[in-house]
């Protein structure tokens, strides 16, 4: 794995730390009066989003532009995809225009893997079905590390619809890779059918878990991904697994509240909880640009292999 970023499991702890270190450099670029460096001048990055995602696409696009890359947006709703063109033909058509990277989001797990087998350009997974969203996990790790320092030994509680969440899969791998311990809290139908091989523990008792939590990570209730209602009602979900003011008070003062957005205020998180000083949800968004700059730069500028050389030399 040097060309693509498909899964957090492609990285390992050392590479994750190195990407986070490098992200600090790009965060610095974001502070400048003119937040743009010529690092990827002459490189072209294409977006292939089969699912709507304004925030992730804008974040990647800002990152690419701050690196002076050219960008190409392949909008699925207005394209030949609606005329029945196959995924492979679409991808090869974009590749034929001369691109260096393609950022792929798709509702089906594994599509970025498939795309990576068809073209020479780097593939960045911007979310595939329920599978993974690796840059989200990296920006979450970056945000948590910025606030809490070393994450080894920290206790992370991930709450909500884990079964349908690519953010959860990437974050379980990411947080555990850097030495944090992860607890999943969800009703049974929203947990993956098997947790064999997952470095996590599971609880159904949110109140008991929160008192011993450094990072409380709330997932969006993915109503659109549930083929049928898996919990009796959103009201009951909120009562059992939502973070309201009382539950937020169970957290220590330094414990972070994180959410990948977009939030369902009043479902998994109450409105005023999201605005507390220890809720870092907007910081996550801001950090997303720097982390995605680091990822684009590593894949297109120097390559992840060089990262390994650097780590070996250090």
């Amino acid at each position: 794995m040097s060309r693509h970023l498909l899964s957090i499991s492609d990285l390992g702890a050392d590479r994750i730390e190195a990407i986070l270190d490098l992200s600090e450099k790009f965060a610095e670029v974001g502070q400048r009066k003119i937040p743009r460096v010529p690092a990827l001048r002459g490189k072209t990055v294409a977006w292939l989003f089969y699912e709507d995602s304004t925030r992730t696409r804008l974040s990647f696009e800002t990152a690419a532009k701050r690196l002076s890359a050219d960008t190409m947006n392949f909008s699925v709703s207005t394209s030949s995809v609606n005329k029945g063109e196959s995924l492979r033909d679409t991808v090869e058509t974009i590749d034929a225009m001369g691109i260096d990277a393609i950022v792929v989001r798709h509702g089906c797990a594994g599509v970025p893997h498939q795309v990576g087998g068809w073209i020479d350009a780097s593939v960045i997974n911007a979310g595939d079905g329920w599978h993974e969203h690796p840059t989200q996990a990296l920006l979450d790790l970056y945000t948590a590390r910025t606030r809490l320092g070393d994450l080894a030994g920290k206790k992370v509680t991930i709450v909500g619809d884990i079964r349908h969440s690519r953010v959860a899969r990437s974050n379980v791998l990411g947080f555990s890779a850097v030495g944090a311990s992860v607890t999943l809290v969800a009703p049974g139908p929203l947990l993956p059918p098997s947790l064999e091989g997952w470095p996590v523990s599971v609880s159904h008792d949110l109140d008991a878990t929160l008192a011993d939590t450094d990072i409380c990570y709330l997932l969006r209730m993915q109503q659109e991904r549930q083929k049928r209602a898996l919990v009796p009602s959103l009201r009951e979900f909120r009562a059992t697994y939502g973070i309201d003011a009382r539950r937020a008070d169970l957290l220590g003062d330094d414990a972070l509240i994180m959410h990948p957005g977009p939030m369902n205020r009043g479902v998994e998180i109450d409105g005023d909880v999201a605005d507390r000083p220890n809720a870092v949800i907007t910081e996550q968004v801001a950090n997303g640009v720097a982390v995605r700059m680091a990822v684009l730069f590593l894949l297109l500028g120097s390559g992840l292999d060089q990262l390994d050389d650097q780590m070996a030399a250090a």
Partner: peptide
């Protein structure tokens, strides 16, 4: 650090 402004990016590592 001028690493991101160089004209030979990719030939040198960027040091965090």
């Amino acid at each position: 650090d001028v690493a991101l402004h160089r004209d030979d990016i990719g030939l040198r590592p960027v040091l965090p």
